[in-house]
Design a protein around this nucleic acid. Structure first.
Length: 750
DNA sequence: TCCGCGCGTATTTTT
DNA sequence: TACGCGCGGA
């Protein structure tokens, strides 16, 4: 059993303790994946049928990686392990067993966009105020309920929920929830949360089914246990209740998905539910330098809610953490890019040894620009997924509708695409009629003469005939041939082809790329089922993170840019955690309560612990956000790091003069904050009530800011020694340009 | 029904 | 900024 060699004692324990409940508390960098991999290999090596193993991971990527690693140890058998995300595994089971709860195997999976769109239509139909009942608010409320296994019936019968909603002036959420659920069901569709919720229902109401899977999954493993919600926890508990061979691996310090219903409470419940539980702590960090581990520990120790553990390392001390202060987001980008460039030169690093981590996707821009300018290759992970692009969603909607004629959201997307002269009025009418007559959308469509009549009926009739041919294609042909036929005959491909704009060209190529992906799916010998339905199943649960994993063939040497959330589970030699500013990180929306702040702190902990050798933290003293410049304070998290781990590196310019104060411009920009909207609209500057003439600011050396105009940029008309001088300052680069101005000033004095 | 314009407003993380 | 929505004209 050579795979046991090289493991430390707790790791070895975690691998060989196979029978009975086990909880592995795995600190960052403690070799968790290795342990999980060997554990599964160990089971199979000792005669356990891979088919009896269920391994639940957080991302598809994690599952695939683990499968590959297990394959290296035990070979082909690894293919038969049931390994995947909660959502994909239970979607698979629901495909098989869904008929018992009223779904067919072709049910659609609504993504968040579909769900919100459905909520939007319901709010409209109920004539509710869509400002009050914003789709995102309603969605998160419903989602939260489902993750706690609260059905709409309970929601509506329990006065607590209603009282809560009423306190926010939204008493109708329960009603929307009910209609939303009914509409999903009618559409033969489930949203993400339903995949878990309905699995719970299935196992609760159909003991024979539960029994079948309880006996099938003799060994259950859950990775990233700290990120599971109640709904997921209950599923695993049920599944493991016969054999009790359940092993969970997690780190409470890395729980960063509470916003999605993840509950650290699960760890505590786990101890309560399994009195014979064995707990193993993996505390030795193999990844990072002493400095980084120490910094991470010092930060996380500020949290009250945590399990005690002592992460340590025998690695070398390594470099101090560098703290970079920049004056603007643009400068931050340049400084980081410069730093990467220098480190590459000095230490012969590859691009791929660097990662830039940020709190929000929108922050990637300044780094992209700076890296591009320096000719450093980079890849941005996350953001808008390929499968979320409009044209891709459009074609997929056609494919979905060909298979599931009741898919309301797919229907709404494609019915008038390309234009068929069927407008919003008709679409709304169809939906309303379907609901009033208690028939499906498809019934209304195919019987349009009866239900609608008139001119629209002809168009609808043609459409339903078209869909029927697609249905036949989907049934008789393989996924690729069917998709190609649909893309062509729907007119979608033609319309995109005729759009010769740059975006249009890109969209056409994207659709081609989707078709290629379907072709690959069909050609892949590992896929037995080559139907369109099978492809859609694969695709509906893919995320942005999975895409980069699949592009593995042409791995380019690139700096990685991504959010901290996406970085979980990854490691890089050099990590930059950027935008370390109060309100940005921790995010201003998150610091309402202690627990929210603590989640942000865990996020910071995750960021720090991605680094192996060198960690750099940066922040800007002013930042361009949402079309305006904002003064920024350094993040409180910076003060929480053990000061012995940090050394400062200032922007060279920033030292000489503070942008705002020195030039008096801070006031002006601040004043402008209060009148932002007006300014943007009228394109002229309107002083706010507290803007007194005395606020007119002297730049220096007789340059007087006489007049301010805000439009696309900030226009300063400067009067003084150089009477006619005007400086046009683009908002985006204001920080930088203002500095240039002050340089100019100095030169005058010379 | 469709299209374009202008306005207002939202800004987190992802299965 | 950038996106979505509503309104008005064709």
């Amino acid at each position: 059993m050579d795979y046991l060699e090289g493991l430390n004692e707790p790791q070895r324990q975690a691998v060989i303790f196979t029978d009975g409940p086990l909880m592995i508390i795995a600190g960052a960098g403690s070799g968790k994946t290795r342990v999980l991999t060997y554990r599964i290999a160990h089971l199979i090596y000792h005669g356990v049928d891979p088919y009896n193993i269920l391994a639940l991971t957080f991302t598809n990527k994690a599952a695939n990686e683990m499968r590959e690693r297990i394959e290296k140890v035990i070979g082909e058998d690894a293919k038969n392990i049931w390994m995947g995300t909660f959502h994909s595994i239970f979607a698979k089971i629901l495909r098989i067993e869904g008929d018992k709860i009223g779904y067919t195997r072709d049910f659609s999976i609504y993504d968040t966009e579909d769900s919100k769109s459905l909520i939007k239509s319901i709010v409209k139909e109920l004539n509710l105020d869509d400002k009050l009942y914003k789709a995102s608010t309603v969605y998160s409320r419903i989602s939260g309920a489902k993750n706690r296994l609260v059905s709409y019936r309970e929601y509506n019968s329990n006065p607590i929920y209603r009282a809560d909603d009423e306190s926010y002036q939204r008493p109708e959420i329960g009603r929307i929830y009910q209609i939303y659920q009914e509409r999903l069901f009618k559409a033969n569709a489930m949203d993400f949360d339903d995949l878990l919720f309905n699995t719970n229902v299935l196992f609760r109401d159909h003991l024979d089914v539960l029994n079948k899977y309880q006996h099938k999954f003799k060994y259950v493993m859950v990775d990233e246990f700290q990120d599971t919600n109640i709904s997921q926890y209950l599923i695993t508990r049920k599944l493991a209740s016969v054999y009790q061979n359940i092993a969970v691996v997690g780190d409470d310090a890395q729980s960063i998905y509470a916003f999605r219903g993840a509950d650290i409470q699960n760890i505590l419940n786990f101890e309560r539910d399994y009195p014979t539980l064995k707990t193993i702590r993996l505390e030795q960090n193999y990844r990072s330098t002493k400095t980084i581990v120490q910094a991470a520990n010092s930060v996380i120790s500020k949290n009250q809610a945590q399990l005690k553990k002592n992460v340590w390392t025998s690695n070398e001390s390594g470099d101090l953490i560098e703290l970079v202060k920049a004056t603007s987001d643009a400068e931050e980008g340049r400084m980081i890019a410069q730093s990467i460039f220098e480190d590459k030169m000095q230490f012969k690093y590859k691009n791929a040894d660097f990662a830039i981590l940020y709190r929000t996707n929108a922050q990637s821009r300044s780094f992209e620009e700076a890296l591009r300018r320096m000719g450093i290759r980079y890849q941005v992970v996350g953001g808008l997924s390929f499968y979320q692009r409009r044209e891709i969603k459009d074609l997929i909607a056609y494919l979905r509708f060909a298979i599931n004629h009741n898919d309301e959201e797919a229907f709404k997307r494609i019915i008038n695409l390309p234009k068929r002269g069927i407008g919003d009025t008709t679409i709304a009418k169809i939906v309303v009629i379907a609901n009033e007559h208690k028939v499906s959308i498809w019934d209304v469509l195919s019987g349009s003469m009866k239900y609608i009549g008139g001119r629209a009926a002809i168009a609808l009739d043609n459409f339903s005939m078209l869909i029927k041919t697609f249905e036949i294609a989907a049934k008789q042909k393989n996924a690729y041939d069917a998709a190609l036929e649909i893309a062509k005959n729907s007119g979608l491909l033609k319309e995109l082809y005729e759009d010769k704009s740059i975006e249009g060209l890109a969209r056409y190529e994207n659709v081609q790329e989707l078709l290629n992906a379907i072709k690959e799916f069909v050609d892949n010998p590992e896929n037995e089922d080559k139907t369109l339905g099978a492809f859609l199943q694969e695709v509906s649960l893919l995320t942005t993170l999975d895409e980069t994993a699949e592009e593995g063939e042409d791995v380019k040497d690139a700096v990685t840019l991504m959010t901290i959330h996406s970085a979980k589970g990854l490691e890089f030699k050099n990590v930059f955690v950027v935008g370390m500013e109060e309100d940005l990180f921790p995010s201003q929306m998150m610091i309402g309560s202690r627990s929210e702040l603590e989640e942000e702190r865990r996020l910071f902990y995750v960021a720090i612990t991605r680094a192996e050798k060198k960690l750099t933290l940066s922040y800007a003293s002013s930042r361009y956000r949402f079309g305006r410049i904002k003064d920024c304070e350094p993040s409180r998290f910076l003060d929480e790091i053990d000061p012995r781990c940090v050394k400062q590196k200032n922007a060279s310019i920033k030292n000489s003069f503070g942008v705002g104060e020195e030039l008096g411009l801070k006031n002006l920009i601040k004043t402008n904050h209060t009148t932002q909207q007006t300014v943007a609209k009228k394109q002229t500057y309107k002083p706010s009530p507290d803007f007194k003439p005395s606020d007119t600011t002297y730049l220096a050396a007789g340059m007087k800011v006489e007049h301010l105009k805000f439009g696309y940029g900030l226009v300063l008309e400067v009067q003084g020694e150089e009477k006619d001088r005007k400086a046009r300052i683009n908002f985006e680069e204001a920080g930088e340009k203002l500095l240039l101005l002050s340089f100019a000033k100095l030169k005058v004095h010379d």
